[in-house]
Amino acid sequence: MSKTFSFPIYTTISDTPTPYCEEIDPEVFLYPFFNQGVSAKRKAFTDRKTSTLGESLLPREEGLLPIRGFIFHTAHCGSTLLGRMIGSSPQVRMISEPEAINGLLLSYLMHQITEAQALNQLKQIIEAYAISGDGKKSIIFKLTSWNVFLIQLFQKLYPSSPWIYIDRETEELVKILTKEDGGFIDWWHHPVDILRKHFVESSICEDQESYLRHMIEGHRKNALAAKNSNALLINYPDFLTAFPEILAHFQLTFSSEEMANALDFQRFESKQFDPILFEPIV
């Protein structure tokens, strides 16, 4: 069994949000989504070690991997593919849409915890993922799409860190999302307006399409409002040809072998861990 580390797995959604950690194999980061990897790797453990994230578990700052940046994005824009391409390098630890961050941000929205508390716990969670010791040299976070509505928290903590935003044409996305479920799409179907009220005015959302349109445009609006000298805004599918530019933006240098391995991910379904060939919908 390979060496295990204590990483944040989830955060309770409450007025006293608590991040929980588990001892787990760092191979979880090779999966399309971090918590998907957690579920898969748990099968190998009969006695999991779970603990709350507190001062005693926080790594010393000198033992942290350098944070190369953050990936913000809209829905269905290829961000998972990009994350897997970057994370395919043995030098990069890619944290993809961790529920520990989502739970904290939902607590901030729904239970009105203070910004100071949110910032403190967000920093603790991010640094808990950055513990070194498995040969990685840097870390990048690919966040859940709606996290861009709270991008100011990340910028306050890491004002000089590079970040990118991947966008996609609104009407094209609306057509795709009306056939999908999960994520902020489920918020529309919820019988109580618990979450969507934090992102759109209910009065202007007469139906699902108008809701999706406003959510997509809201993602874009927040990214544009946050744009600074550390930002790289790019559209789907342009990021595929701009991959070297993205690496440079994150101050990463791939060898020719690493680059070939990364580009090879374009052949497969990005949201499937097993290599299933990608078949575009005609």
Rank of each mutant, 00 (worst) to 15 (best):
P159T: 05
I151M: 12
H190C: 07
K175F: 00
F184G: 08
L143Q: 12
E169N: 15
D167Q: 12
K175V: 01
S160E: 15
T170K: 10
L153K: 04
Y158L: 11
I194L: 13
Y158V: 07
I185L: 11
S160V: 06
D186R: 03
E171Y: 10
V148I: 13
Q155W: 02
N147L: 09
F149Y: 15
I194R: 12
W163I: 07
E172A: 15
K175L: 08
P159L: 08
F154Q: 04
G183P: 05
H189M: 00
L150E: 10
E169F: 02
P159S: 13
N147T: 14
L153D: 03
E172N: 14
L177H: 01
L153V: 05
H190I: 00
L153S: 04
P162L: 06
W163F: 11
W187C: 02
K179R: 14
T170C: 13
L143I: 09
R168V: 06
T170E: 09
T178V: 12
I185C: 12
V174P: 05
D193Q: 12
I176R: 07
L153C: 06
G183E: 02
G182Q: 06
F154Y: 15
E169K: 15
E172H: 10
I151Y: 03
W163D: 09
Y165E: 06
I194S: 12
S161P: 01
K156Q: 12
Y158S: 09
R168K: 15
W187E: 10
T178C: 11
L150V: 00
I194N: 10
W146N: 10
G182P: 08
Y158R: 09
L143G: 07
I194T: 15
S145Q: 00
Y165P: 03
W188R: 03
W146A: 03
T178L: 14
P191C: 08
E180S: 14
L173T: 13
W188H: 10
S145I: 01
H189P: 00
K175A: 13
S145K: 03
G182A: 07
K179Y: 00
K175T: 03
G183A: 07
W187L: 00
I176Q: 11
N147C: 15
D186E: 12
I151P: 09
S145R: 03
S160T: 13
D167G: 09
V148R: 04
V148C: 08
D167M: 08
E172P: 00
G183T: 03
D186L: 03
P191K: 02
W163K: 11
T170S: 06
I185F: 01
L173P: 05
K175I: 01
I176A: 13
T178R: 14
E169P: 01
W163P: 11
T178N: 12
D181R: 13
D186P: 04
L157Y: 04
L143N: 14
E171S: 13
Q155E: 13
I164N: 02
D167V: 00
